[in-house]
Structure formats: C-alpha cells, structure tokens
C-alpha cells in the first residue's frame, strides 16, 4: 500500500513537471493560430483552422526578419570567435606548463562570482567610448566576453583528455605549435567545443539585459528586446503577439532538441545556467 502511494506521488510529480514546462509554450503556439475573438472568448479551445497569416504579416509588414537576422549575426559571430579564443586559452592551460598558469586560471574562474549585471555601467561606458552604442557589433563584443569561465572550464578538461602522445608524435614529424593545435587537438575536441558553443549560443540568443541596455533604435534590436516592443505595437492583437512569441521561442527549443544530451550533461557538470 505504502509503495503504491509512493509510486502515485512520483508520477503525479512527473506529470506536474511536464505540464508546467510545456503547457505554457503549447498554449502560446496554439493561440497563435486562433483569432483574437477566439483567444478572448475561451483560452482553452483548439484553433478551428490553421493559418500562417500572422506569421507572414510579422515578416512582411513588420521588421521581424531584421530582428532575427540581428540576433543570429550577433550570436553566431560572438559564439564562434569566443569559442576560438577560449579554446586557445584552455588548450595551453590544459596542456602546457608555463609561469603564471595557475594564477591566470584562478582569475578566469573567479569571474564566475561576479554577477554580470553588476558591471553594467562600466561596460555601458566602454561601449559608448568605442562608439558602438546602438550597434549590434557593440553587443557582439559584450557577448564575446560572456561565458569565459564556463567555456575555459569545459574546454580545459576536454583538451586534457586528449593524449599528449599524439602531440609528441606530430611534433616528431615536424609539426609546429600551431599545427599541433589546429590539426591535432582542435578536431579531437569536437565534443567539448560543441557543448561550450551551444551553451554560449543559447545564452547569447536569450540575452536581454545588455541587449536592451546597449541598443536604442528599432533597426538594432535583437529578438528578446523586440518582444518588449511587440506588446506596445500590437497592444490588443493577441494573435500576432502569440505568433511573435512562438517565433522567438522556437529556435532555442529546436537547438536544444538537436543537442539535448550535451546541454544536459554540461549543465549537470558545471551547474551553470544553460
């Protein structure tokens, strides 16, 4: 009897978790296919017909494409560049001995303790000073710096797990430092690079605080920031609002669906928000 109750509670908790996690999103997607009257009339009914008209409207009559392109450009450039930079750093920290190594690694790790919001003013002023305020590349520069500690962490252990005998062999064949890195180590670190890259991309894609602080004009908004202004422009056109929300949310979910194992494993290992 007692066992039955435990089992029941377990399933209850699991069903509860699944519902609170996906139902809000399903509701949003479903509502984007309903008319305004249907949404206001009864929030629970299924849509009567499937129409992509609000989606087409967002792309054709509204700057949605521009926001999506902005988001994508900022995220992909900053993620790829920082991945290369942090991989280079993590590689030498993980595989070589040189004076100051532990100090540098300790400094990188300590950055985890600094809430990124608390540095808002100096970063805001820095971006102003280099004339990149209200410019998506200013945002890209800031995103470049995020995820330093986490990525170096993940990548350092990846590089350490690649046997040094491979490097030795390559060196005996006459390969220089750069070739050992780019042709031997980097290809073998694919797993770690994917994990760190996906986490950084997701974080950048979803970032709102700096995106809203560092941009002001319509043409430089990223998707999360644009969301804030949708509410004003479509104040009572809920169908379009829900369609916009769907479009903002879906890419992250798709990326997660494709790389779900990596995301989960790295979150479990680092305890850092994915």
């Amino acid at each position: 009897m007692k066992k039955k109750i435990t089992v029941f509670c377990m399933y209850f908790l699991m069903v509860f978790t699944v519902i609170i996690s996906v139902f809000p999103i399903l509701w949003v997607i479903m509502s984007s296919f309903k008319t305004n009257a249907q949404i206001l009339g009864n929030p629970f009914t299924l849509p009567t017909s499937i129409s992509f008209e609000p989606y087409i409207y967002l792309f054709e009559k509204y700057d949605f494409l521009r926001y999506a392109v902005n988001s994508f450009l900022v995220c992909i450039t900053s993620t790829l560049l920082s991945l290369l930079f942090f991989a280079m750093g993590a590689y030498v920290i993980g595989k070589y001995r040189f004076p100051g190594k532990s100090l540098i690694f300790a400094l990188f790790t300590i950055t985890l303790l600094v809430p990124s919001h608390s540095k808002a003013q100096p970063i805001f002023s820095l971006i102003m000073k280099i004339n990149l305020y209200d410019n998506i590349w200013g945002l890209a520069v800031v995103y470049l710096s995020m995820g330093l500690a986490m990525s170096v962490f993940i990548l350092k252990s990846t590089f350490m797990s690649i046997p040094s005998s491979l490097d030795e062999a390559a060196r005996l064949e006459g390969a220089g430092f750069l070739r050992v890195f780019f042709q031997i180590n980097l290809p073998l670190a694919k797993g770690g690079l994917a994990t760190a890259g996906i986490l950084m991309f997701l974080n950048n894609w979803n970032e709102f605080f700096y995106a809203s602080l560092l941009t002001s004009s319509n043409k430089n908004r990223t998707l999360p920031v644009a969301l804030q202004f949708f509410t004003e422009s479509f104040s009572y056109d809920y169908t379009k609002l829900f369609a916009a929300l769907t479009l903002v949310v879906l890419p992250g979910i798709i990326l997660y669906a494709l790389a779900q194992e990596q995301v989960q494993a790295s979150v479990a290992a680092t305890g850092v928000k994915g």
């Binding site: 699944v18 996690s21 999103i25 979803n206 995301v263 979150v267």
Partner: peptide
C-alpha cells in the same frame, strides 16, 4: 528530464 529543461533554454524575456 528532457522536458523539464525546456523553460530554461528559451529566453527569460519570452
């Protein structure tokens, strides 16, 4: 476990 993660992969703004 997979589903529980979904709210965390979409933007906090959304």
């Amino acid at each position: 476990r997979v589903i529980f993660m979904v709210p965390n992969v979409i933007s906090a703004a959304a």
